[in-house]
Nucleic acid binder design. Structure first.
Lengths: 193, 193
DNA sequence: CGTCTATTTGAATGTACTCAAAAGCGGTGG
DNA sequence: CCACCGCTTTTGAGTACATTCAAATAGACG
């Protein structure tokens, strides 16, 4: 159960056996079926989630009622409404499963305890925030400088594992285009090959 | 010289007189004329900058040679290539003055010293990163759900002090449109009133 | 005053959108 | 296991918005 998350953490920090045990004891497993909510707009994000298995999307709904996918998350990814979690204020994001999903979660107070006991984790979670920041910055630049077609190609190149599993309408939402446009882009691209 | 920055810091953390002195001693003032670079792509961002006076833009240049303004910064703002600074790796951003500018800067080693001596500053700079993260997230959502016209209106509503001082071509770049389009949007809007 | 850059305006083009309808697919109940 | 229903994806036609390229005007700076 902890194999994947420990491998994930070890990419950034090294843990002793004792630290590993302390960490895993703070984690709570959770299972969700397809199309269930992990977080809904207005709730405070109490947890950071690590995905052992499955697939989710994080999205907001704007004043016009449109959904916008901010991010997908699959195995070996962390997710949460970062802002809501860090500030412990009501979320503007919704997190919903796309497949049956198995998670490990750590709540805010447990994370504080973890930081005090194993300060290396401060570094680890700061790096998560940094990476999220960079990903956002890259997305801003790409949304301005690339066409929808180019954005789609980059997406499947960057996240090949996702393309198969995520309904096209969600990918379209992530790319900032309509499902119809994505459909046309895809048929154009297969013709060319 | 330190009035503005201390007021800025005090919005998030309270400092004793001693801590204030320690902090200000680490700051180096710097003056730049219009159209000078504070940071260029490829250099490592050694500093966080606080702007006492003036105006700057942070931008990237993509493979196609297009400039994209990521952010503007004026008095009472902090700026840097956040990623380059945090990871101490070469920057992808350029930072260039739009007006004659007066800054206070703190370098990476000094910040480490500051963290050790006055740990409250860890909180302060984490909040800076958080706010930058949020600003980016909001921009992604708005770039997907708003028209160019709406984005421009939000911009002048959110940063009224900037509109007067920043050449339109830079604002267009920030909004992700061409200068011609922005010109048309503006003439449309004044007609309506 | 002249030069260089920024901004505006015009015309033609292109990309993605909306609305509508058909086709495809998956899950559920008989 | 199959038939049906609802949702997703595709396709089509017409439209809107922003772009490109070109040229004119306005403004800033030495």
């Amino acid at each position: 159960m902890y194999e994947l998350i420990l491998k994930n953490v070890s990419r950034f920090i090294d843990l002793t056996e004792e630290e590993t045990d302390f960490f895993t004891l703070l984690l709570k497993p959770r299972k969700l079926r397809k199309k269930q909510f992990l977080l809904q707009e207005g709730d405070v994000a109490h947890y950071q989630y690590f995905i052992n298995k499955g697939c989710l999307r994080i999205y907001t709904i704007n004043e016009k009622g449109q959904e916008h996918v901010i991010q997908f998350a699959i195995e070996d990814w962390w997710t949460s409404d970062m802002y809501s979690f860090l500030t412990q204020t009501p979320a503007k994001m919704n997190i919903e499963t796309i497949e049956d999903t198995e998670l490990l979660s750590i709540d805010y107070p447990s994370l504080e305890i973890l930081y005090r006991k194993v300060p290396k984790f401060e570094r680890f979670f700061r790096l998560l925030l940094q990476n999220a920041f960079i990903a956002h910055q890259r997305r801003i630049i790409e949304s301005m400088s690339l066409t929808a077609d180019e954005r789609y190609c980059k997406f499947i190149e960057r996240y090949p594992a996702m393309e198969q599993r995520i309904p096209l309408k969600f990918i379209a939402s992530y790319l900032g285009i309509t499902p119809e446009s994505l459909s046309r882009i895809r048929s154009q691209n297969t013709k060319v090959k």
